[in-house]
Measured scan of single mutants.
Amino acid sequence: MTEYKLVVVGAGGVGKSALTIQLIQNHFVDEYDPTIEDSYRKQVVIDGETCLLDILDTAGQEEYSAMRDQYMRTGEGFLCVFAINNTKSFEDIHHYREQIKRVKDSEDVPMVLVGNKCDLPSRTVDTKQAQDLARSYGIPFIETSAKTRQGVDDAFYTLVREIRKHKEKMSKDGKKKKKKSKTKCVIM
């Protein structure tokens, strides 16, 4: 069974824990209790493949930012979460993405942009803004509501699919490099 290491990042209060708990335990946590770091595991079937999701729910508070490099190193894919009623959390996505790329030393890291709290009427981040940002990053965008469960499975499952595509691409690139290195030079 394939294991996928997913990391949920975003500013404090955007609903990272609520999304994760909704996926794992099928219930909505409405009281806000700032996370330092929590880890969850769940076995699911995605596109006919049974897999184990190892999900790291991270601290959004700035005082825990020193811990970010460590979990970013171990993560295979990242859910970059903002709240649709919090423009600052949307603007912060850029910083999370840049930090992930720096730590992973790669421009090509599996990510999904997630606009959470889409059940709320007080939207300050337009869907088109988020779609445009995701398009500019070359990553999928999904709106979710941890409260109603809308888009929750889709967000995590899409990230797994992005990781699969990335692994497939990397193995193809690896095979191309191996083929090239088999060419021999004969000096007579």
Rank of each mutant, 00 (worst) to 15 (best):
V125H: 01
V125L: 01
V125Y: 01
D126M: 05
T127E: 12
K128W: 06
K128Y: 07
A130I: 15
A130M: 15
A130H: 06
Q131K: 12
Q131Y: 08
D132Q: 07
D132H: 04
D132C: 04
D132T: 05
L133R: 03
L133I: 09
R135C: 08
Y137G: 03
Y137I: 14
Y137Q: 05
Y137K: 05
Y137P: 01
G138E: 05
G138V: 01
G138F: 01
I139G: 02
I139W: 03
I139K: 01
I139D: 02
F141G: 01
I142R: 04
I142L: 07
T144S: 08
T144G: 05
S145Q: 04
S145P: 00
S145E: 12
R149A: 09
Q150A: 13
Q150G: 11
Q150R: 10
G151S: 10
G151T: 12
V152R: 06
V152Q: 11
V152M: 13
D153A: 13
D153S: 12
D153W: 06
D154I: 05
D154V: 05
A155Q: 01
F156G: 00
F156H: 01
Y157G: 13
Y157T: 13
Y157L: 10
Y157M: 13
Y157R: 14
Y157A: 14
T158F: 05
T158K: 06
L159I: 11
V160H: 03
V160P: 00
V160A: 03
V160N: 02
V160E: 02
V160D: 00
V160K: 06
V160I: 13
R161W: 01
E162V: 01
E162L: 05
E162T: 03
E162G: 04
E162Q: 12
R164V: 11
R164D: 09
R164E: 14
R164F: 06
R164Q: 15
K165V: 03
K165N: 07
H166G: 08
H166S: 10
H166C: 06
H166Y: 11
K167C: 02
K167W: 01
E168I: 10
E168T: 02
E168N: 10
E168L: 13
E168G: 07
K169G: 11
K169E: 14
K169I: 11
M170G: 09
S171M: 09
K172Y: 12
D173F: 07
D173K: 06
D173A: 05
G174W: 00
G174H: 00
K175Y: 15
K175G: 13
K175W: 05
K176W: 07
K176S: 11
K177T: 07
K177A: 11
K178G: 11
K178W: 06
K178P: 09
K178S: 11
K178A: 12
S181W: 01
S181Y: 04
K182I: 04
T183S: 06
T183A: 11
K184V: 00
K184W: 00
I187A: 15
I187C: 15
M188D: 15
M188S: 15
